[in-house]
C-alpha cells in the first residue's frame, strides 16, 4: 500500500501527559504511532482512562500533544495557520460524540447544515445534501424537530449525518453507543459503519464493546500509552 496516498490520518511519536490531582504527572500517551488508511474502519479499545479519548483529541488537534507529529491527508498539522487548521479540521474530520452534542436551539436539519455553515456560505446544495443524509439515517420525517423531542438513538443518528455533511476523510467516533440501550446501539453502529463506507470515509471508532470493535476492518488496543494491533 502506498502510504503517502492512502494514509488519511497519522500520529507519529505522540506523547501526552497530565498533572494528576496529587501533583504527579500521568503519562497517557507514550510515543504513540497510528496510521489510518483511506476507506478503512479502525477500532480503538482500551481500559477506562487508557487515553483513547485523549488520543482522539490530540489527533484532531483539539488538544495539542507534548511531543510528536500529526498528519491529516498528508499535511503536517502543527505547520498549519490557525485559520487553515480550523478549515481543514471541518473538511477532513467528522465527529460523533458519546453525548451527541446537538445544538438545542437548532432543529434537526439546521444542526446537520451547521457543519457546512462553518466553512462556506450555504445554498440549496447544502440543504439537499443534509436532507439526503437525514433520509439515509431514517429521519426524513423529523427534519423540523428540535433535538429535545428526539430519542437518544435519533439524536445520535443526527450526529452521524452531521459528521458526514462535509464529506470528511475520517470520522472520529468516541463511544458513539455509550449512552444507548443494546438494541439501539447495535442499529446506530450498523448505520455508522455502513454510511461511512458508502460515503468513502475512514472510521476511527473508540469503543469498549468487543462485538462492535470486531466489525471494523482493523482493531488496535491502547495500552501503556501505545497502540498494539489486535489480530
Amino acid at each position: 500500500m502506498n502510504d503517502t496516498v492512502n494514509t488519511v490520518l497519522q500520529a507519529k511519536g505522540v506523547e501526552k501527559s497530565f498533572q494528576g490531582p496529587d501533583g504527579l504527572t500521568i503519562d497517557v500517551l507514550r510515543s504513540a504511532d497510528l496510521k489510518v488508511h483511506s476507506g478503512e474502519s479502525l477500532s480503538i479499545r482500551g481500559e477506562s482512562g487508557s487515553g483513547k479519548s485523549t488520543f482522539l483529541n490530540v489527533i484532531s488537534w483539539l488538544d495539542q500533544p507534548d511531543k510528536g507529529l500529526v498528519f491529516w491527508d498528508g499535511l503536517e498539522v502543527p505547520a498549519l495557520s490557525r485559520q487553515e487548521l480550523a478549515r481543514r479540521r471541518s473538511e477532513v474530520l467528522g465527529f460523533v460524540f458519546q453525548s451527541y452534542y446537538l445544538m438545542p436551539e437548532l432543529n434537526v436539519l439546521e444542526n446537520v447544515v451547521m457543519a457546512s455553515r462553518m466553512i462556506r456560505m450555504i445554498g440549496r446544495a447544502e440543504w439537499n445534501r443534509a436532507e439526503q443524509l437525514l433520509e439515509k439515517v431514517g429521519l426524513q420525517e423529523r427534519l423540523k424537530q428540535l433535538p429535545s423531542k428526539l430519542s437518544g438513538g435519533e439524536r445520535q443518528r443526527v450526529a452521524i449525518a452531521r459528521a458526514l455533511m462535509n464529506r470528511p476523510s475520517v470520522i472520529l467516533a468516541d463511544e458513539p453507543t455509550g449512552n444507548l440501550d443494546e438494541e439501539t446501539a447495535s442499529l446506530v453502529m450498523e448505520l455508522l459503519l455502513n454510511l461511512s463506507r458508502k460515503e468513502e470515509a475512514s472510521l476511527v471508532l473508540v469503543t469498549h464493546n468487543p462485538t462492535f470493535a470486531a466489525r471494523t476492518d482493523r482493531q488496535v488496543m491502547l495500552s501503556g500509552g501505545k497502540f498494539e494491533e489486535v489480530s
Partner: peptide, 10 residues
C-alpha cells in the same frame, strides 16, 4: 467545544 470541533476559530 463542539463548535471548535466543527471548525470554529476562537
Amino acid at each position: 467545544g463542539l463548535l471548535a470541533a466543527l471548525g470554529a476559530r476562537r
